[in-house]
Design a protein around this nucleic acid. Structure first.
Length: 555
RNA sequence: GGACUCGUAGCCUAGCCUGGACAGGGCGUCGGCCUUCUAAGCCGAAGAUCGCGGGUUCGAAUCCCGCCGAGUCCGCCA
């Protein structure tokens, strides 16, 4: 809806001007109108007049007689500020939201399929908080893209041909798997122990490479060992993801591409390109693409590398749709190489969402050394912290209520604290910060929703309402509600879920303020306000669902 | 050493792609608001040379160059 208002503003300017020009519009701070444009500055040179004069002349020529949403313009400091007719806007926006409900803000079907790869952690232990960042960003993006009109398939690429899984298998041959603990944690225990063994007994290296070769060759018993180990670990990983509300549509195994011959095929294709070099090893010279590092495809012993298998994997995926990968910053080089190779092969390059690392105050995490904070730990701590809060605030409520609210609040806090930070910022994990449910955090948003719900429980909004002069808080709310569709599409196109997080904070803030100053039930504007509350609740709910934040009716 | 990313108040962060009017929030600190729809809320105060230096521009947190600091990568590992 705000888009329509902006279109109206542009048209007014162009009509007054008498010629086409790009009109940038911004949302100014308090005191400078509801929309503003600095177009007069760019016109200054062309018209050879100072911006202030242009603005004044232009403003005086704007004809508002047929405008729907703009009721006043002013020229100030060379800017043209627009003041909106909030009565008209409120009526239109609230009406549209109540009519469309959860469909409000949804994009038209784009007819485009996207394969969104995220998480893809090695099956050698539980997800740690770094994988959590991947999964949470990836899942939010998937939800946003779907809402925005794309057909999205989320995919987990399972790296089963690496040394890690071989180490796990080696460990399982001589260590007892702790069946009493969560599967992924039990596997991690074996993995850490087995790594120590391999380090202490170098002769085990031989067994490791034997294992890997047997697996690649598809020896039945070995395949069984690898698969059951990986699947066992994956069971635990899926459990964690599911607790966060995350599920993948598709799991693909790295080994498929080797056994099916896809890797052989693509290597052959690449070997015949002008980028191929062979001197014992087969590699690609990608300098033309600004990549210094040569990309080795096949070792001197004839075996393939991870990157080679990933090329086959991506070539396969590229047939299914547009590719987006959520990858850690350590994979930046591989991302560049892969893009170059797909280009060589005549396929569209994948898009990468690269997120920087989450480190511990003491340094990097390492599954191998057992130095990491698992997502499970983080969730458990967050939920128990949330439980303490509910118990303190709602002591009279049932145990069941407290436990279920705590679960939702804990999950919401974990997801929100991660998704709200831009992926390109490196994070240092500190328990105090992770468990500090800051004022404008997830509970703040959930609470806004619960407050709206409570009001509506007491009175249903009538189907028709009159809009009178709006309060400042109502205006802020209406404007935010009007901008939701634009926020969604921008977050989708720019692939930035964090934009929705900022929006949600703003919307919840506006609602809490409204709640504080503008009583609903006892108001003479009750009819309109009830509808406004309903509309706000609806959009809050939509936005929360887009970030995977559990919605609570009561807390 | 090279490549990429980041550097905004004591701490965390938005804005940077698409340059505009006194740089938004939050935590923490200090001071207020519950006989009124749940105070997980609201209001106010103090706190910023937007890492440093140059350039482009009427105008730079935003674009360009250099420097400094941090992270990541630079395996015939995955």
């Amino acid at each position: 809806m705000l888009l329509e208002v902006k279109r109206e503003a542009r048209e007014l300017i162009i009509k007054a001007l008498g010629f086409e020009i790009e009109v940038p519009l911004e949302e100014p701070r308090q005191g400078y109108g509801d929309l503003a444009t600095a177009v007069c500055f760019s016109l200054a040179k062309k018209l050879k007049k100072p911006p202030v004069e242009i603005a004044e002349e232009l403003a005086s020529r704007i004809d508002l007689s047929r405008a729907r949403f703009i009721e006043r313009v002013e020229a100030l400091n060379g800017f043209i500020n627009f003041y909106l007719n909030f009565n008209a806007l409120a009526e239109a926006v609230v009406g549209e939201i109540l009519e469309k409900g959860g469909e409000y803000g949804k994009g038209r079907p784009k007819g485009e399929r996207i394969i969104l790869e995220h998480t893809s952690a090695n099956p050698d232990g539980p997800l740690h908080i770094g994988h959590g960042r991947n999964a949470i960003i990836g899942d939010a993006l998937a939800r946003i893209l779907r809402f925005s009109g794309y057909e999205v398939t989320t995919q987990y690429y399972l790296n089963d041909m690496g040394k890690q899984l071989a180490v796990v298998v080696l460990g399982l041959r001589r260590l007892e798997l702790d069946r009493s603990s969560k599967p992924d944690h039990a596997i991690a225990q074996v993995y850490v122990e087995a790594n120590k063994m391999v380090e202490a007994q170098p002769e085990l290296q031989e067994e490791l490479s034997l294992l890997m070769r047997a697996y690649e060759a598809g020896e039945k018993e070995v395949v069984e060992e690898f698969r059951s180990a990986a699947e066992y670990c994956l069971r635990g990983i899926k459990e964690t993801l599911s607790r966060l509300g995350i599920a993948h549509d598709l799991f693909t195994w790295e080994s498929e591409f080797v056994r099916r011959g896809d890797v052989d095929d693509v290597v052959e294709r690449l070997r015949s390109t002008k980028y191929a070099r062979e001197d014992g090893v087969l590699y690609l010279d990608l300098e033309e693409f600004g990549i210094e590092k040569e990309l080795v495809l096949r070792r001197s012993d004839g075996t393939y590398l991870y990157a080679t298998r990933d090329i086959a994997h991506h070539l396969w995926k590229a047939k299914l749709g547009k590719l987006i990968n959520v990858w850690g910053a350590d994979h930046k080089l591989l991302a560049k190489q892969l893009s170059a190779v797909l280009r060589i092969l005549g396929e569209e390059e994948p898009e990468f969402i690269i997120y920087e690392f989450i480190s511990l105050p003491g340094g990097k995490m390492s599954t191998r050394r057992g130095v990491f904070i698992s997502l499970d730990e983080l969730i458990d701590e967050a939920v128990s912290r949330a439980y303490a809060e509910v118990a303190k605030r709602r002591p009279q409520e049932s145990e069941e209520f407290k436990a279920s609210v705590a679960e939702s609040v804990g999950i919401a806090a974990v997801r929100f604290n991660i998704v709200r930070i831009s992926p390109e910022k490196a994070m240092v994990f500190r328990w105090e910060e992770a468990l500090d449910f800051e004022r404008q955090g997830a509970p703040f948003i959930q609470y806004a929703y619960a407050r709206a719900t409570r009001i509506l429980e007491k009175a249903q909004p009538p189907s028709s309402f009159k809009v009178r002069e709006l309060t400042e808080n109502e205006r802020a709310l209406v404007k935010l509600l009007a901008s939701f569709p634009e926020v969604v599409s921008q977050a989708a196109e720019q692939r930035r879920p964090s934009m929705l997080a900022s929006y949600l904070i703003e919307l919840a803030t506006a609602f809490h303020r409204f709640y504080m100053f503008d009583p609903v039930l006892r108001s003479e504007h009750r009819d309109f306000r009830l509808n406004l509350v309903k509309a706000t609740r609806s959009v809050l709910g939509s936005a929360m669902r887009l970030l995977g934040i559990p919605v609570l009716e009561m807390m």
